[in-house]
Design a protein around this nucleic acid. Structure first.
Length: 551
RNA sequence: GGUCCCAUCGUCUAGCCAGGUCAGGACACCAGGUUUUCAUCCUGGGAACAGGGGUUCGAAUCCCCUUGGGAUCACCA
């Protein structure tokens, strides 16, 4: 394809990198790589109130985790660099002002003095009259002298772009095709804000031009903005890049997948359960009532996480970081995200990033929006996990545990813990969930009387519980606590106590030591626990049920 | 409401641009089987061209309309 392809991903650091943004970044990266071009990262932090350094770092981490590394941009670890920076918009004010002066000189931009409140009134009027809001160009009627005077007085102002006269506007989008709109649909939008910062529209045009971006891939919510952008480019004499607008990602219920989904889930639960005050200390009464007073006041991430944990509800996974925490592998998330709107054809679905780079093209991007299907992601993760060698699985599980489950990372028999969980885990988290009994103290194991527990211990002609004393005695005799010894002991027990039915002895043992019907294979489970803990748990279980039910 | 975008199994999609294979695959689901639990694993199955008009010998594919869904209409990006 064309030479010098350069794409960019330009997030505003106001939250976390969510899956939609991640997919855009992946496509940008893949397109650049597929065409021997460069991928650039730019931080759009012109919103002084909402941008944060913490969020910026989060974006770097999330992108790095996915192995989407930028050739140009902020220098972090082994990514970034380039000499068309700085790559933070907040540090490019001079550049924007320079371009703004040109526009002012050409009389393609003008000062406007309406207050936000005044504009709000106009907007409401427009809504009531069932038409789209357009700025009425009132400030354009001001005389030069008045404007000069207002500015000298320090009257608060913005700068607006003066949309030139002309015919309809057409942009040829690489995904959507030709899109045409009447010029009158574009109003004189603000390009410089009252705080002296450029708006998104202005900064993005200046930066994309100065950084020589050739292809702009972005979410379809920007399709309408494109007309503002091409107008600005024409006014400034910039070349128009190629545009590719990617459809949105939705939740399974059809709603737009958004960063607000977590907040929504929490609100719903709180409302449905009539919870009137904060159940945890980390959310103050003030924070709670502020949150409850308006849907626009979202809880901080930490607060939301803590509250969800307290209420015992699962927050929907929407950010890249959520999937990392949940124990998915980055290459799987990347793979799955690619498939939401693009496919390589030939019935191929599972692939790595080398394959992606080789095959990626804009003309295979689907126009229609996609729903995010966690079940398929999970299935992909399972497949990928199973393809890992034992050593690789162990090292990656260890890595994950070090970050999210240090008590498991510290396990002396980590190797066995890993191998025992390899083929039965769909995510890294699965391994610690079904093996949580390992890190629980012997004296803290409890046995909820659920159906499977009752079935294994209390039901039947000869109950599992009644076999317990014999099992305990047999285990006491096992000298070396090895897989072979345990196995042979269990088989012997099965033939003497249960006509060779291994399940009849294994399942009561499993429940006794694990506190529930699910654990790794029984031999591994017992070795992981050790002989002493195994015996203690068996005894405690026997005592507990013997005392509660006079069987 | 104005403007713009979109429309193949429950879901992601292949097929469409260059009309002509029982509309293919994956996930999910259902039924069997393997397995000491859970999870895997194996076999089989049901499942879609939104509706209506054209064009054509022939339409999922090209055109129009209807319906449905979505985006956007900020001194946020």
């Amino acid at each position: 394809m064309s030479t010098n392809v350069k794409t960019r991903f330009a997030p505003s650091p106001t939250g976390h990198l969510h899956v939609g943004g991640a997919r855009t970044a992946i496509y940008c990266w893949a397109y650049a790589k597929a065409n021997g071009g460069k991928f650039l990262l730019r931080i759009e932090d012109t919103d002084q109130n909402r941008s944060s350094e913490q969020a910026t770092t989060g974006f770097f981490n999330d992108l790095s985790w996915l192995k989407i590394l930028w050739d140009e941009g902020p220098t972090i670890n082994n990514a970034g660099g380039g000499n068309e920076g700085p790559y933070y918009q907040s540090k490019r004010l001079d550049l924007y002002k320079e371009q703004l002066d040109r526009l002012l000189e050409l009389e393609l931009a003008y000062y406007a003095f309406e207050t936000p409140e005044e504009l709000q009134v106009e907007r409401k009027k427009a809504r009531a009259q069932k038409r789209a809001y357009r700025y009425n160009r009132k400030s354009l009627e001001l005389s030069k002298e008045t404007v000069t005077q207002f500015l000298a007085e320090g009257k608060p102002h913005v700068v607006r772009f003066k949309v030139p006269e002309g015919g309809p506007l057409t942009v040829t989008d690489c995904v959507v095709g030709d899109v045409t709109v009447e010029r009158t649909e574009v109003d004189d939008f603000v390009i410089f804000k009252g705080d002296g910062f450029p708006t998104y529209h202005f900064a993005v045009i200046v930066d994309d031009a100065l950084m020589h971006i050739t292809h702009v891939l972005r979410g379809q919510e920007h399709l309408n903005n494109t007309f503002k952008h091409i107008l600005l480019q024409e006014a400034l004499g910039f070349e128009r890049p190629m545009y590719a607008h990617i459809s949105l990602i939705f939740n399974p219920d059809g709603s737009k997948m958004s960063k607000r989904d977590k907040d929504k889930a929490l609100r719903k639960y709180v409302r449905e359960n009539n919870i009137e005050s904060s159940p945890i200390v980390c959310i103050t009464d003030e924070a709670w009532s502020a949150w409850q007073s308006s849907k626009d006041n979202q809880l901080e991430t930490e607060e939301a996480t803590a509250l969800a944990a307290e209420l015992g509800i699962e927050l929907p996974e929407i950010n890249v970081d959520d999937f990392k925490k949940a124990g998915y592998m980055p290459e799987v998330l990347l793979n799955y995200l690619c498939l939401l709107g693009w496919s390589p054809g030939d019935d191929i679905e599972q692939f790595d990033s080398d394959f992606l780079i080789e095959k990626f093209s804009l003309d295979r991007i689907v126009k229609s929006p996609a729903k995010f299907d966690r079940a398929k992601l999970l299935a992909f993760n399972l497949d990928a996990l199973q393809k890992l060698s034992a050593a690789e699985f162990e090292s990656r599980l260890l890595h994950w545990c070090e970050e999210y489950a240090p008590e498991f990372a510290a396990l002396e028999q980590f190797s066995l813990f890993a191998s025992a969980n390899h083929e039965r885990s769909k995510t890294f988290r699965d391994a610690i969930v079904t093996s949580s009994f390992i890190t629980v103290d012997d004296e803290a194991i409890v046995w909820p009387e659920t159906k499977p527990v009752k079935k294994a211990l209390l039901k039947g002609e000869v109950s599992g519980l009644s076999r317990m004393p014999a099992i305990i005695e047999a285990f006491k005799e096992v000298e070396s606590w090895s897989a072979e010894a345990i196995d042979s002991c269990l088989h012997t027990l099965a033939s003497t106590l249960a006509e060779g039915n291994l399940g009849k002895v294994a399942q009561p043992v499993r429940i006794a030591v694990a506190g529930g019907p699910v654990s790794p294979p029984i031999g591994d489970t017992l070795i992981l626990l050790g002989k002493k803990s195994t015996l203690r748990r068996l005894e405690r279980c026997h005592e507990y049920f013997a005392s509660t039910c006079d069987a």
